[in-house]
Design a protein around this nucleic acid. Structure first.
Lengths: 189, 189
DNA sequence: ATCCTTTCTTAGGAGGTCTAGGCAAATGCT
DNA sequence: AGCATTTGCCTAGACCTCCTAAGAAAGGAT
C-alpha cells in the first residue's frame, strides 16, 4: 500500500511515451495504470477521463513541437528557415509518431490548451518573417504551410516510415516549390 | 426471429451514415447492430471485426470522393480544374465529415482497398495534366496538393465548420497561390 | 421433403470506462 | 507531538464494447 508517486507530470509523460510505443489511439487509462502498478480507478484522482488524458498528451506534444520549431528558426531566415522548420516538423513526427498523432487531437476551445496551440502558429509566423508577406497573405501562408506539412508527414508515416531516398528527394523538391511560392506570392487576384 | 435483411452493402452505407452523424471513431459494431435491430454478435456474419468494418467505410468514402473529383474535372483544365477539384474535396469533407475522416483511415496494403486509394491519386494526376509538369515534379505536386487539401480541410473541420467569409476568402487566395506555384514549378534546384 | 448454407440467436469471457465509498499515508495546523 | 485534513490508492461494481462458440431458424437448392 505504498504510494506509487503518480503525478500529473509523470503521468502525462508516461502516456506520451506509451503513445509513441503503441499508438496514440491505443493510449488507455488501464494500460497507463498498469505501467505505474496501480489500478485503473486510481488514475481518476489525476485525470477526469480518457479525453482529459489525451488532451494532456496533445498539449505536451504541441509544446515540444513549438520548442523544436523555435530552436530550428533561431538565427535563420528565408529558405534556410523554411527548410529548418520543415525538417524539425518532419523529424519530430518520425521520432515521436504517437506524440505527433496527439498534436492532431481535437482539443476543445477552452482550457489552457489554446496557449500551446497558438505558440505553434506563432512559430510559423516567425518563419514567414523572412518572406515579407503582408496580411492577409501571411495568414493564408500559415494555413498553407501547416496543411502541407501535416499532409505530407501523415502520408509519410502512414506509408510505414519508408525514409527512402526517393521520398527524401521529393520532400526537398517540395520545399523548393514552397520557397518559390512564398517569394512569388500572388499579391492580388 | 424474422431476418433483418442485413447485407454488406446496406451495412457499409449505414456505417458511413452513422460516421457522419456521430463521428467515424464512434462507429461501433454494437451501435450499428442497434440500428438494424439485431444483436452485435449477428454483425460478425457480415464483417470480420471492427477494423474490417472501418475499412469498408473508408473504401466507400474514397470511391465517392474519387467520383466527385472526376465529375469536377470533366471538361476543365488549368486553374478551372484546380478550383473545381479543390472545392469538390472541401465540399465532400463538409457534407460528410465522418466519411471524410474515414478516408484518412490507414488501410493495410493488401485487400482490394488499394484500388479505391489509387483512383483517388489518379484524379489528382488528371488535374495536373493542364499544368504540363514532367516527372518527378508531377509526383511531388500530387503530394503537395494532397497535403495541402487535407491539412486545410482538417484544420477547417476541426475549427467547427465556421464557413465564414474570411475562411472562404483565405481558401480562394490559397488556391491562387497554388495555381501560381504549379505554373512556376521549379525545374531544377 | 430434405439437406445446406446463411443469418440470427443466446451465453459468456476479456477488457475498457468510470463512480461510490473507504482506508491509509502524507501533509498542514496548532 | 498530536490532531485534522487532504490526497493517493484501494475494492466493488455497473455498464459498455469486442469477439467466439454453439445452436436454432429461414430460405434456397435438389
Amino acid at each position: 500500500m505504498a504510494r506509487a508517486g503518480v503525478t500529473v507530470e509523470r503521468l502525462t509523460r508516461a502516456a506520451a511515451d506509451l503513445a509513441d510505443e503503441i499508438g496514440f489511439e491505443n493510449v488507455t487509462v488501464s494500460a497507463l495504470a498498469r505501467g505505474f502498478g496501480v489500478t485503473d480507478a486510481s488514475m481518476y484522482s489525476h485525470i477526469r477521463n480518457v479525453r482529459d488524458l489525451r488532451t494532456k498528451v496533445a498539449i505536451l506534444a504541441l509544446t515540444e513541437l513549438a520548442e523544436r520549431a523555435a530552436a530550428a528558426l533561431a538565427g535563420r531566415s528565408g529558405k534556410d528557415a523554411l527548410v529548418a522548420f520543415a525538417n524539425a516538423y518532419r523529424d519530430y513526427a518520425r521520432e515521436h509518431p504517437g506524440r505527433y498523432a496527439a498534436t492532431r487531437f481535437e482539443l476543445d476551445p477552452d482550457s489552457a490548451s489554446a496557449e500551446a496551440a497558438t505558440r505553434h502558429s506563432e512559430m510559423t509566423r516567425a518563419l514567414l518573417r523572412g518572406y515579407d508577406l503582408p496580411e492577409p497573405a501571411q495568414t493564408d501562408a500559415v494555413r498553407l504551410l501547416h496543411g502541407f506539412f501535416h499532409g505530407y508527414v501523415s502520408l509519410e508515416t502512414a506509408g510505414g516510415f519508408s525514409h527512402s531516398q526517393a521520398v527524401d528527394a521529393s520532400w526537398a523538391r517540395n520545399l523548393d516549390a514552397l520557397d518559390v511560392l512564398l517569394r512569388n506570392w500572388p499579391s492580388q487576384m
